[in-house]
Design a protein around this nucleic acid. Structure first.
Length: 480
RNA sequence: GGGGCCGUAGUCUAGCUUGGUAUGAUACUAGCCUGGGGUGCUAGAGGUCGCCGGUUCAAGUCCGGCCGGCCCCA
């Protein structure tokens, strides 16, 4: 029937259009009236909630607390750290009036909260006993996107968390940077089933104001890289202008060492791109708002009663295991319609129960990842479904790892580099460490350094551009 | 950053060249029929034609500006 209900383009034929359709048609989000802003619908927000809850637990378990910061930051405060300010100012939204009255010190809608948070921290941190201070904020940030907006990937306001910590020593702060990055990696790999590569950003690509930035990066099916999260070592770059200092055990006034880090709903964008297929969204069970959908099938009122009571029984049994189960009892649409509908929405597992199944004592299971059908007896329902969900989660992760492998190359010759980059790839190449060579690559290929992986081991080699000796192995890619 | 395209009911769309307040489908509501891969019939309801201005007796249609969206190439 009407094909417009479903996804009308193939993922590998028009990736961009496919992505937009999945976001809208799976009811993840919709466009707001202002350019670059989206409304997150309950189905999309639920994914964010799962991700949030998983990360929040880990943060709390490691001594972080949540706080809340206001959205308006006076320009005078935002501009205190000059590099930081210069980096963000092109995309800041400004509030210039309250009612009809012009505001003298105009107010920024937070592009990030370092300035505001640290102006507060300077009041709260006086003694070594006040440290470490580890506060996380679940909020949104606003950065004006002039062109090329894309739901979840590039929006003028985005949901995220930003953590801001203060430490007595450099070592402790650097440990924090790494432990957060590891926490992010674990969360993304285990919950979203997306493998990431962790490492450092180059000087050119680091967070403005940071001493260095660590990052986790992944590659999308179209060959473009996506930054999945960052954790920054700020050193004393902010504690000095914002006066975050304390008296140490020797009664010496000392500037504190700081970190900041964040992940955003961009991760949902990655999830859509990595796992989705021609039929729509494919969700890993861990974050799926609905993990199991049960479609009852019946012809007569007698069958209806029989089927619905069996379906409720199964649903109840599964709910006891904390599974998110939905019973699709709509009678205005046919089973076939429901099958397509839930496939588009990416529900990991579908259960069909009709009179024939009840007669056989079995139900039909259909996996969203492979679309394979199988039987399961009612007695085995709970264990069978639990283990199949685990299998789906695993399988999605394995598929994503294969994608990453397929798209990764190791190249030392620049001509080969250029032709491979045209296809879209993660390219490991030796790099001398100079911004000049990095810029040459950017100009001629559009690719930049996504990450200098921690685990990239390389013999002494020659920079792909200037041929100077180096041991740095960087990953280059075009990016979102 | 550069270049194309688009905006009419919840959704998809005809009408625009050649001006006269709008076509069809789907979804929605009611009743029946159906139901294991996007059911069928009958009736009903649903519209500031993105916004503002201009031309005109008359603008969805022509002109200008703005807002919003999509795609392609750096």
């Amino acid at each position: 029937m009407s094909k417009e209900i479903g996804i009308t383009v193939k993922k590998n034929e028009n990736f961009s259009e496919w992505y937009t359709q999945v976001v809208l048609k799976a009811h993840l989000a919709d466009y707001a009236p202002v350019k670059g802003l989206i409304v997150l619908r309950p189905y999309g927000y639920s994914i964010w909630e799962s991700l949030k809850s998983s990360l929040d637990q880990k943060l709390k378990a490691t001594g972080h607390e949540n706080g809340f910061l206001p959205v308006l930051i006076p320009e005078s405060l935002l501009s205190k750290e000059s590099d930081h300010f210069a980096g963000f100012t092109p995309e800041v939204f400004w509030v210039t009036h309250s009612g009809e009255t012009e505001i003298g010190d105009r107010l920024a809608l937070r592009p990030t909260s370092e300035a505001l948070a640290y102006s507060m921290y300077s009041k709260w941190v006086k003694s070594w006993r006040d440290l470490p201070l580890k506060i996380n904020f679940w909020n949104t940030a606003l950065r004006a996107e002039i062109k090329a907006t894309k739901p979840f990937l590039r929006t003028s306001e985005f949901l995220w968390q930003e953590g801001h910590t203060v430490h007595a020593t450099k070592e402790e702060a650097e440990q924090e940077v790494m432990s957060i990055l590891e926490m992010y990696k674990k969360t993304v790999e285990e919950e979203l089933a997306i493998p990431v590569i962790t490492g450092k950003k180059s000087e050119k690509e680091k967070f403005v104001g940071a001493v260095y930035t660590t990052t986790m990066e992944s590659i999308m099916p179209d060959g473009k890289a996506l930054q999945m999260g960052t954790s920054h070592f700020l050193g004393q770059n902010f504690s000095k202008p914002f006066d975050v200092k304390f008296l140490d055990k020797q009664n010496v006034e000392t500037f504190a060492w700081q970190t900041s880090w964040g992940v955003s709903w961009r991760l949902i964008g990655a999830l859509i791109m990595i796992h989705g297929d021609d039929k729509g969204l494919v969700l890993p069970p861990r974050v799926a708002p609905i993990q199991v959908v049960i479609v009852p099938i019946y012809y007569s009122p007698q069958d209806m009663e029989l089927v619905l009571s069996k379906v409720s029984e199964i649903k109840q049994a599964l709910t006891k295991h904390n599974l998110r189960v939905h019973m699709d009892v709509r009678d205005e649409v046919t089973p076939g319609y429901k099958f397509h509908d839930w496939e588009m929405k990416g529900v990991p597992l579908r259960v069909e129960i009709g009179p024939k199944d009840i007669a056989k004592g079995k139900m039909v299971l259909v996996r969203r990842d492979s679309l394979k059908k199988s039987d399961l007896t009612f007695e085995d329902a709970e264990n069978g479904i639990l283990s199949m969900l685990d299998e789906i989660q695993q399988n999605l992760f394995e598929n994503a790892k294969s994608l990453l492998r397929e798209k990764t190359r190791e190249i030392t010759d620049f001509d080969e580099f250029k032709s491979e980059m045209e296809k879209g790839a993660f390219i490991y190449s030796p790099w001398c460490g100079q911004t000049k060579c990095e810029e040459t690559i950017k100009e001629s290929t559009g690719a930049d350094i996504r990450v200098i992986p921690f685990d990239a081991k390389m013999q002494d080699s020659k920079c792909i551009i200037c041929k100077n000796q180096t041991t740095i192995h960087a990953i280059f890619a075009r990016s979102y």
